[in-house]
């Protein structure tokens, strides 16, 4: 496969926070690797506290990792400066979850969409106007909508505006952080289709962050599953959603309730609470909730083992020695 357009190696982020009167380290992301290739979508799945938001912010250079590095087209990102940084800003664009928070209420839509273009040199006013019209039409709105304010639009339309903005600078990577979870169900499919169409049309690389395996299955080619800041399973979307190897992924799959009243009961239903990332369990981070745990899980943190589905998972049960 060709060189990754965006990748991360050994990524870690520690927040120093004040908790119950004393300073503590919060390991939001630990030792994370990922690769994103042009034209493909990488799904990132996890629940609250798994570090997916921190990961998104690091990959957008909104936050600096404590350890590790983000690579963009083979260049280390923490040292990017001047022209290279501007190029990164043009090429990597986000869409956030909440379209009410992501559009400045005091700006006209045209100005909001043109904002990523303002750092690109050599664009005349009429070029910008033309581009704004183009992208508005690309997401199913009208060029004339550029003159209106965000509060004149519904939630679904606002998210379309946010997408139009994201593609305005002809980016190569889209970072999608739960882009449909605040939307009504009849709107979700519309937004997901738009994103998928745009990705195919422009050959974008997408990172799709979600807590919902079903939308990830629809959007993503490859998936990483995160738990308490670590990747615990990775593989193709099809593999993760049909033959997951890690007990946590199985629990997630069981919790993704199918719209079918006669669905069989899952074999490994989820149990227990998500531990606080301030006080992560020893050994395997999932052992406190795992119905299959044994002695070793409490003391030794499992490395990634090859999984039957072709990917890998961090579970002792996949250790070839134990499997015997």
């Amino acid at each position: 496969m060709s060189e990754a357009i965006l990748s991360a190696t050994g990524l870690g982020r520690v927040f120093k926070i004040q908790h119950k009167g004393r300073k503590q380290d919060l390991h939001a992301v630990t030792d994370l690797d990922l690769e994103l290739h042009t034209g493909r979508t990488l799904g990132v799945v996890g629940e609250s506290g798994c570090g997916k938001t921190t990961l998104n912010r690091i990959l957008l250079l909104l936050d600096t990792p404590t350890t590790g590095e983000v690579w963009f087209k083979g260049k280390a990102c923490t040292t990017l400066s001047g022209e290279a940084r501007r190029e990164f800003r043009r090429a990597v664009q986000p869409v956030f979850q909440n379209p009410f928070s992501s559009l400045d209420p005091r700006m006209r839509v045209g100005k909001i969409i043109a904002e990523p273009l303002s750092t690109i040199t050599g664009m005349s006013r009429s070029d910008i106007e033309k581009r704004v019209g183009e992208v508005l039409e690309a997401v199913g709105l009208q060029a004339a909508d550029a003159r209106r304010f965000p509060n004149e639009f519904s939630g679904g339309q606002r998210q379309r505006i946010a997408i139009a903005r994201a593609i305005a600078s002809k980016p190569e990577v889209l970072m999608l952080d739960e882009p449909v979870s605040s939307q009504d169900i009849s709107i979700r499919a519309q937004i997901l289709n738009i994103l998928k169409d745009l990705q195919a049309e422009y050959g974008l690389g997408c990172v799709f962050i979600s807590h919902d395996l079903a939308t990830v299955r629809f959007m993503a080619d490859d998936v990483i599953v995160m738990y308490l800041g670590r990747v615990i399973e990775k593989g193709t979307a099809q593999a993760i959603c049909s033959t997951p190897a890690h007990p946590y992924t199985k629990a997630l799959l069981a919790a993704a309730l199918p719209p079918d009243p006669d669905a069989p009961r899952p074999e490994l239903p989820p149990q227990g609470e998500i531990p606080s990332p301030l006080d992560p369990p020893s050994g395997c981070p999932y052992h406190t909730r795992c119905p299959l745990k044994f002695d070793r899980c409490e003391t030794v943190r499992p490395p990634m083992f090859a999984a039957p589905h072709g990917g890998a998972a961090a579970c002792h049960l996949l250790d070839p020695e134990i499997a015997q």
Binding site: S186, A189, N193, A214, R217, F218, L253, A256, P258
Partner: peptide
């Protein structure tokens, strides 16, 4: 229009 974990169609049927 609701996606499921079982299969990934090219596009989802939508309500305009």
């Amino acid at each position: 229009s609701v996606p499921t974990v079982d299969h990934a169609p090219e596009r989802l049927p939508t309500i305009p």
